[in-house]
């Protein structure tokens, strides 16, 4: 990990929907360093989730550039490999597959990696242990609490050891205690694994857990500042 290196470089990104009638991003610019924990905050509809989705290559910007680990996403032909190996995504809703066990859910992204069945199982078990759910590997999501489900989703996001973790309102659907646990877990992972963590939250208190807080308004980054949490 090189703290001076730019991991994510978003330059003047514009994104509109419905033939330009809805302007989600209006020239957003953001830089995130390798291993940094950045929170993007702002009111509902300010474009923070859209920005995160563009970094995750779930969508393409209308204009501007997004460079991740030196790769201009506009030039990446194989976005599937980028999504499976370069970034890990945690959604507000856990989005686990209901018929699969926690372990099988964690293994989902690993189908695109060159891993044997046994390697997948062992790795999923290690990841579940890392999020404190080693003993719930065979439990389906329906039998897990909201916080546990989100921890399984975090384990899934780490399945292919991505250097960047993107979390979209990961505590938005949880009670405060479970939310705090999930936040602690994300912070621990970021520090222990040295991953770059970008977290989107409308909650300023949640966002304050980050090293740096970026505030967005009307599709632009309007303010950047250090929070009280230094780099680990």
């Amino acid at each position: 990990m090189n703290r001076d290196r730019i991991a994510i470089d978003v330059q003047e990104v514009v994104k509109t929907y419905e033939e330009g009638r809805i302007r989600a991003l209006s020239g957003a610019t953001l830089q995130v360093r390798e291993g940094e924990f950045v929170a993007i905050t702002g009111p509902s509809g300010c474009g923070k989730s859209t920005l995160l989705h563009l970094i995750a290559a779930l969508d393409r910007p209308d204009s501007g550039r997004i460079v991740v680990d030196g790769m201009d996403l506009a030039e990446v032909r194989d976005l599937s490999t980028y999504r499976s190996h370069r970034v890990g995504l945690v959604f507000q809703l856990h989005n686990l597959l209901p018929t699969l066990s926690a372990s099988a859910n964690v293994q989902i992204p690993m189908y695109e990696a060159e891993l044997s069945l046994w390697e997948r199982r062992a790795k999923a078990q290690r990841l579940l242990e890392a999020v404190g759910l080693g003993d719930r590997a065979n439990t389906p999501p329906i039998k897990l609490s909201g916080g546990e489900r989100q921890r399984v989703a975090i384990a899934r996001a780490l399945a292919n050891d991505p250097p960047i973790l993107l979390a979209d309102e990961p505590t938005g659907n949880l009670d405060s205690k479970a939310g705090e646990m999930v936040l602690d877990l994300l912070r621990t992972i970021q520090q222990k694994r040295g991953v770059t963590l970008v977290l989107v939250s409308h909650d300023a208190q949640i966002a304050s857990a980050a090293e740096r807080v970026v505030r967005m308004l009307d599709g632009r980054v309007v303010d950047e500042g250090l929070s009280g949490h230094p780099a680990g």
Binding site: L58, S84, H85, L89
Partner: peptide, 10 residues
Amino acid sequence: GILRAVGWRQ
């Protein structure tokens, strides 16, 4: 959508 988001190819 989730499967594609976590990296599944078409």
